[in-house]
């Protein structure tokens, strides 16, 4: 019996037809995603137009970084509910700096400081304070949002330097959106780190069994700490990209319901709540699935509340799949 729970999507390519329940479920999801894309291509007008495809690829970057950060955290056995509000916190700080004349480079550095700052708070509390990730990051989520509101007195920040806006929200070769390039680049690097390096193996092992990992000499607390800092960093990167694309920084740059999207992408990609499974590649596939769905809703003119509701129910179904998958 060949079973490789940690490399869920790889069971397909290296062994042939997947044997484990987990492998089969992942194969089913991948198959479903392909079917969805095909169906949508046929039924939804303008879906396969280049403009639309490029729009989709740009959209990947809005949640992509957060999903990658969430993947690292979830594989190590934790969860980060705060990353999406840290985006706002980082964005308003950087945008306010830019609007009052600070150089865009320095402002982006500020965003990174904010992101890593919140990540550090999470990391310290969870890795060394031994507190429960869910509640800690729930608190940080509220704190980050409160911070953003306090910092701007609930107003949005515009007046951003056009150099910055154009550089990041522009297109390379006049065609490929810069954000798409950034997200693909980050995804490739992240996938490599998680699946092929010592650090990545540590993350998987800690997620599988923290106690065994500690006794085996793996630096558990430090590794967990870094996953949260990384997640905070990803929030800052999202802030950089989103602020440029939207042209303003607001206190709710990523809406509440996106949190579930982020978690769902990692779960579709093979991560489980317990940790020890999942992959960046899988998460990106899940992200593609959701982005395509959103795009389709948009093109079909589905009113936002209904889309939200439908997605909520679909995602509940996806989570149910995770239960089936882990037996």
């Amino acid at each position: 019996m060949l079973d490789r729970p940690a490399e869920s999507l790889r069971t397909f390519s290296t062994i042939g037809f997947p044997q484990s329940r987990r492998g089969k479920t992942n194969a089913a999801i991948a198959f479903g995603a392909i079917v969805l894309v095909v169906v949508l291509s046929i039924t939804v007008p303008h879906f396969t137009r280049l403009r639309n495809v490029l729009a989709i690829s740009e959209q990947l970057s809005f949640l992509g970084f957060l999903s990658i950060g969430m993947t690292f955290v979830m594989v190590s056995g934790g969860i980060d509910l705060s990353s999406y509000t840290v985006v706002s916190a980082a964005a308003v700080v950087g945008a306010t700096a830019m609007a009052s004349g600070t150089s865009p480079l320095l402002s982006c550095a500020l965003m990174i400081v904010v992101g890593i700052g919140f990540g550090t708070v999470n990391g310290v509390a969870i890795a060394w304070g031994r507190m429960i990730p869910f509640i800690v990051t729930l608190s940080t989520m509220v704190l980050a949002q409160g911070f953003a509101i306090w910092y701007t007195h609930a107003e949005s920040v515009s007046d951003l330097p056009s150099g910055y806006v154009n550089a990041i929200s522009g297109r390379l070769v006049g065609l490929i959106p810069v954000p798409a390039i950034i997200i693909i680049g980050v995804a490739v690097i992240a996938e490599f780190v998680l699946s092929r390096t010592q650090f990545g193996r540590w993350v998987y092992l800690i997620g599988t069994n923290e106690h065994t990992a500690r006794i085996s000499g793996i630096p558990v607390a430090l590794t967990q700490f870094f996953t949260y800092v990384f997640s905070g960093l990803m929030a800052a990167v999202t802030a950089m990209v989103l602020t440029a694309v939207l042209g303003t920084a607001t206190t709710a740059m990523v809406q509440d319901d996106r949190l579930l999207d982020i978690i769902a992408t990692t779960v579709i990609g093979g991560a489980g709540l317990a940790g020890g499974t999942g992959s960046v590649a899988g998460t990106m596939l899940g992200l593609l699935f959701l982005t395509v769905l959103d795009n389709a809703f948009n093109l079909l003119g589905v009113p936002p509340f209904i889309g939200m509701t439908i997605k909520g129910f679909i995602l509940v179904g996806v989570i149910g799949l995770d239960v089936v998958r882990s037996g």
């Binding site: 869910f134 509440d256 319901d257 709540l273 939200m308 909520g312 509940v316 149910g320």
Partner: peptide, 18 residues
Amino acid sequence: AKMSSLLTTLGLMIAYRG
């Protein structure tokens, strides 16, 4: 269905809100 209460109620929270 033995689903995780955390994620399930998170999803339903959004659905009910919608």
